[in-house]
Design a protein around this nucleic acid. Structure first.
Length: 594
RNA sequence: GCUUCUGUGGCUCAAUGGCAGAGCAUCUCACUCGUAAUGAGAAGGUUGUCAGUUCGAUUCUGACCAGAAGCUCCA
């Protein structure tokens, strides 16, 4: 959402406006359904919500009714007044609102307990707020959805109903916002990717197990080959390790204790009289076996191992989302085994590599960086290692990030169980953020695996490990590429780069000649020799986002030329076959966004 | 896993407690064409699955499966 779409340029004002909207929402609900209990109602980045404990479920009809009541409240121009109460009186005032009582009881001793009152409605709230409900433009409010949300964000608590809304000072701004949201949905990879036949899902295969159709598979293959080559240039050694292992391996790694629920287990995990296997949810312990193949010297380090690695994670059923969150995926995985003195330089190269990959595919501009740390307050069952080890790992990582000038936010309790991470984050068309690429420092696991090297001084020492990816999971990356380019992928990675369109049957043989010559050069080419009109053929190629169309008629045959058109609508005119092939090669080699 | 919603041909959508319909796509024939929908015809369905209610269920009920948004989770 660009800033100029908001008239309230000032974020604080915008937040206040939306916060007051959430109170108006609660007031409207209370008027219509007095039995509803109130939880919390803040502003968010785009709009506001209120969490409600309600016996009725908020269907679209009911949301409309509530919107109507909100309009009335705005028209009533109710004065919004703040007041404070001592704890006992505050509890008395809110005695019919159990969630508010809980909030008050959790406020520390001596904290000011403030309320905001508008007309007959009073809410426990720290504020701030507008001075009157009349400040809010009633017909520029839209309640966008009603969903579930756990009380206090804890899945062990009751699930409340959350009503989301958005509001603007002017009706046309609301309309523009809603229209923009509609447009964004048209780029949704989960819709576009199916429409364009990149992937599909099938009931009998199961949730989170997408089928990559020929086009999607081709894009991913192109990316994988390229990433493997780039990694080779960065000194990575390619490995191919098994997709499953006995439970004993995961016991060493700690995954059996930390991650059993997330694994697909083959066999009875509790029956030790028989082998029990599990599909791998990560590559680490497998790739470590490469290091452990023989005794290592300090001269072997850094050892950079890369693998195009397929992983399996038994995500909860509600977590799957298109290609972004799946149960089986393939990642550009890698582990670096290092001496401590090599940490900074190698970390820097990992970051450079990731940035290079993301920039080349065109995603870097919209990425943000998150320094994911452990939570010292979290009980020890989530994280391995001591506080000293964590402090050290995070200190080193912070130092490196600062030295590299990385602009990052800090994510507490976002670390891996074995170490802090630099996560490179990306937002989908709905604004939901996921990790695209991660680089992690691990000072713990090498010891668990007995990984050592003999140093110059003859001493056996424990190396550091960096876990990293250069382009993330290919499925997720493909999803973001589809959304970013609205399906029109850059030519070098497009599944179909050229479509040859003969206008008449007389040109069909010539068309196949041209197509076959291009195919032999490694370009991805299709021929549309259907009996449709040229206009129709072009429309087909454009809706399928094919970068180049080669149009062949009698004239082209006679002159041995090809008439070329780009999907953008640009007409490149007639040229020799050789000229077109050279043009295509240039575009693909340069990996230009065109 | 939780809340709410959804499931009718490959896709987009109608309809109904009593014979399931259209457009696009597909196939056949005709057309051989220069920039966003050429004409005619054909084929395509156990209405997600399994139970229940009913004389009769695609429609009502339940369970399951799958899809969507959000929550929670995400080594």
């Amino acid at each position: 959402m660009s800033d100029n779409k908001f008239t309230f340029e000032n974020e604080e004002y915008r937040r206040t406006y939306w916060h007051s909207c959430s109170h108006i929402l609660a007031q409207a609900v209370k008027r219509l359904y007095p039995e509803v209990k109130l939880a919390i109602g803040p502003s968010i980045d785009e709009g506001f919500y209120y969490d409600l404990d309600s016996p009725v479920s908020f269907t679209p009809d009911i949301l409309e009714k509530i919107e109507g009541e909100m309009k009335k409240i705005c028209k009533e121009k109710l004065k919004i007044e703040r007041f404070e109460l001592p704890r006992a009186e505050a509890l008395e005032l809110m005695k019919d609102e159990p969630y508010k009582v809980e909030l008050i009881n959790d406020l520390p001793e001596g904290e000011v307990i403030s309320f905001y009152k508008q007309g007959e409605f009073t809410d426990l709230c720290a504020g701030p707020h507008l001075d009157s409900t009349g400040r809010v433009k009633g017909n520029a409010i839209k309640l966008t959805s009603a969903t579930g949300a756990y009380w206090r964000g804890d899945e062990h608590n009751k699930m409340l109903q959350r009503v989301y809304g958005i509001a603007f000072p002017k009706k046309d701004q609301l309309d523009a916002y809603l229209k923009e949201k509609e447009e964004a949905k048209k780029r949704d990879h989960n819709r576009l990717g199916r429409e364009l036949e990149y992937f599909n899902t099938v009931d009998v295969i199961g949730q989170g197990l997408p089928i990559l159709l020929p086009k999607g598979a081709r894009v991913i293959q192109t990316l994988q080959r390229w990433v493997e080559d780039v990694e080779q240039q960065h000194g990575y050694l390619l490995t191919k390790t098994p997709l499953l292992a006995k439970r004993e391996l995961y016991k060493i790694s700690g995954h059996w204790d930390h991650y059993l629920d997330g694994m697909f287990v083959l066999g009875d995990p509790d029956d030790y009289s028989k082998d029990c296997f599990a599909l791998r949810p990560m590559t680490c312990p497998f790739q470590y076996q490469v290091y452990l193949n023989r005794a290592r010297s300090y001269r072997d380090l850094p050892m950079r191992l890369g693998e195009t690695s397929t992983l399996f994670r038994n995500e909860d059923s509600g977590e799957m989302h298109g290609l972004i969150r799946v149960r089986q995926f393939t990642i550009s995985e890698g582990h670096l085994v290092l001496r401590p003195d090599q940490l900074e330089e190698e970390f820097k190269d990992c970051l450079d590599l990731a940035k290079y990959c993301l920039d080349t595919v065109g995603l870097l501009d919209k990425c943000t960086f998150r320094f994911s740390q452990w939570d010292p307050a979290n009980p020890n069952n989530k994280y391995e290692g001591t506080a000293e080890q964590w402090d050290e790992a995070q200190r080193v990582m912070a130092q490196i990030l600062d030295d590299l000038g990385v602009d990052y936010t800090v994510g507490i309790d976002e670390a891996a169980f074995y170490g802090p991470k630099l996560d490179i984050q990306y937002k989908n068309v709905y604004g939901k953020e996921d990790t695209l690429v991660t680089i992690q420092i691990d000072m713990l696991l090498a010891q668990r695996y007995g990984m050592v090297y003999t140093d110059k001084d003859g001493e056996k020492k424990t190396p550091y490990i960096i876990h990293r990816t250069s382009l993330g999971c290919y499925e997720r990356t493909l999803a973001y590429l589809i959304e970013t380019y609205a399906g029109a992928l850059p030519t070098w990675m497009a599944p179909e780069q050229v479509r040859v369109l003969p206008i008449t049957d007389r040109a069909a043989d010539y068309a196949w000649d041209v197509a076959n010559k291009l195919k032999k050069k490694g370009f991805r080419v299709e021929v549309d020799d259907s009996s449709n009109t040229l206009r129709y053929k072009i429309r087909g190629a454009q809706t399928e986002k094919v970068p180049y169309m080669v149009i062949l008629g009698d004239k082209d045959m006679e002159n041995q030329t090809v008439s070329v058109r780009h999907r953008s609508g640009e007409d490149l005119g007639a040229m020799s076959y050789e000229a077109f092939e050279a043009l295509l090669k240039d575009v693909v080699d340069s990996k230009a966004k065109k």
